[in-house]
């Protein structure tokens, strides 16, 4: 029997009860969320379960929602079942004051670099990561550039005419 979203949802709620929430299917991709303390348990369950078999981590990234106090940062896992060729999305939310999330490197080796990238750009602190340091940006950078409190443009420069870039000036 082909694996469907209903089956995945059923298996998850059987195992975790009402801890798993936020089921939706934007653009046909099954999505759900869980408390951040449970992220490894959920990933392990999805990995081990003989029916679900989500054993490939396609992507790991973060999203910053400044308008959600207490759950500003979402860490998103994209998981792939290579047998049935099904992808799902799994989110955990964390506050920005203490953005600690357990690392998935013990389960997926590929999470190592992805978590470093997520740390680099969003400052998510992956607890237990073997080598959590910047991977893409310069080591001296003292901020997390993809968080929304940082403007897109480089604020340090003074020679560019704001009018030419559609910000400030007389054309607004």
């Amino acid at each position: 029997m082909a694996l469907t979203s209903e089956i995945i949802k059923q298996r998850l709620t059987d195992k975790f009860g009402d801890q798993v929430t936020g089921f939706e299917e934007p653009y046909g991709m099954f999505t759900f969320e869980a408390p951040k303390e449970l992220n490894l348990k959920v990933l392990q369950f999805l990995f081990d379960d003989n029916e679900l078999k989500f054993r490939f981590l396609t992507d790991l990234c973060a999203v910053h929602y400044p308008g959600q106090p207490g759950r500003e940062l979402a860490v998103v896992y994209h998981l792939h079942n290579l047998v049935d060729n099904i992808r799902i999305r799994f989110k955990v939310f964390t506050g920005i004051e203490q953005p600690d999330v357990f690392t998935a490197t013990q389960l997926f080796s590929t999470a190592n670099w992805m978590e470093r990238e997520t740390y680099d750009f969003f400052g998510v602190n992956f607890v237990g990561h073997p080598n959590l340091k910047r991977i893409l940006n310069v080591d001296e950078m003292d901020y997390f550039p993809l968080r929304k409190e940082f403007p897109l443009e480089d604020q340090s420069r003074i020679d560019k005419d704001d009018e030419m870039f559609g910000r400030g000036g007389s054309i607004l």
């Binding site: 940006n137 950078m141 940082f150 897109l152 480089d154 420069r157 020679d159 560019k160």
Partner: peptide, 14 residues
């Protein structure tokens, strides 16, 4: 010369 269109955190502005 100036960073060009890449007015962003990762690009040297000239």
């Amino acid at each position: 010369s100036s960073g060009g269109i890449f007015d962003t955190y990762s690009v040297l502005q000239g």
